[in-house]
């Protein structure tokens, strides 16, 4: 499963869960996140994330 991890804090964006804190619906793919979306834990931008594949 593809997930994206924030290299500033270790938070993982799970597309199945979305991000309720910023109104991101469950099922939202990483590519569909708005450019101004930030890590909900540390406020880092999308460029701080790296793809993690299990």
């Amino acid at each position: 499963m593809k997930q994206w991890m924030c290299m500033n804090c270790g938070y993982t964006y799970d597309p199945e869960a979305g991000d309720a804190t910023q109104g991101i619906e469950p099922g939202t793919a990483w590519e569909d996140l708005p450019d101004d979306w930030i890590c909900p834990h540390c406020a880092a931008n999308k460029e701080s994330f790296e793809l993690e594949e299990d």
């Binding site: 500033n8 270790g10 540390c42």
Partner: peptide
């Protein structure tokens, strides 16, 4: 657990050692 607790703080200085 719909809201995360702030015990490790948050933002750029969130606890490095939380994991």
């Amino acid at each position: 657990r719909t809201v995360r607790h702030l015990s490790f703080a948050g933002g750029p200085h969130i606890c490095v050692g939380q994991h």
